[in-house]
Amino acid sequence: MISCGKRLGNSELLMTILSLGCVIAVWELSVKILRLPSWFLPAPSAILREMQNSAGYLWSHTFVTLQEILVGFIVALAVGIFLGIIIAFSPVLEKTLYKLLVATQSIPKVAIAPLLVLWLGFGLTTKVTMVFLMCFFSIMVGMVSGLQSTHRELLELADVLGASWMQSFFKIRFPAALPYLFNGLKVSASMAVIGAVISEFVNADRGLGYSLLISTSQMNGPLAFSIMTILAAIGIGLFSIVARLEKVICPWAK
């Protein structure tokens, strides 16, 4: 059964690679045949060449953005879990704080970005805060719904066994909530990249979002596409790490 699943996984991977290869080939050919200018749509080969030529430049900006993303994500994880726990166990907080957070969540984050600059200045804190705002909500929601959907039987069992609050939390409720938490984490993994780019668009002197703005204003197509490729890779990478962690930590989750 396990080996069958693996084989299926491999053929799936092969399909992904093949279809991606086809897209890239069609892209390359159409750029060549239609003689599209590189500012309009650069060929994949041109993007690859640009990535090699500007490796140093790209890496320095990638480092900045990656730092914003990771710090923001980790802060969101800590705050999301903490808020999730206290909200899940407090009907009062669920009716007040949770409702309030849900309401404020409907404000578009892009609209807050300029305000954040006003409040927090031009530094790293502003970007990290933006990433945090993008991420923490789905993490918190995952934690709350996970903790609130423990099987009734398990809670009754804990009750009959005379488990203390701490025992039933650490032995039953929290581990049972982990798959829900991971769902939240997977959503926020892609949001984190968006958050970093938005805040760099609004105000920055470094980072991938910033250099994307510069490259498009200079009509440097290959560079802009290189940056987008890196942004996509960061998003995919973060998502894969979370997904892999989920497989290791809660292999029972579907």
Binding site: H151, E153, L154, E156, L157, A158, L161, G162, A163, Q167, K171, I172, P175, A176, L178, C250, W252
Partner: peptide, 23 residues
């Protein structure tokens, strides 16, 4: 119960031991 209601992250043996741990 009607459902087995086991803890999916625990091995079979550790599931059986849960009551002893709690007590």
């Amino acid at each position: 119960f009607q459902q087995p209601a086991l803890l999916p992250w625990r091995k079979v043996l550790d599931n059986v031991l849960l009551p002893c741990e709690i007590r």
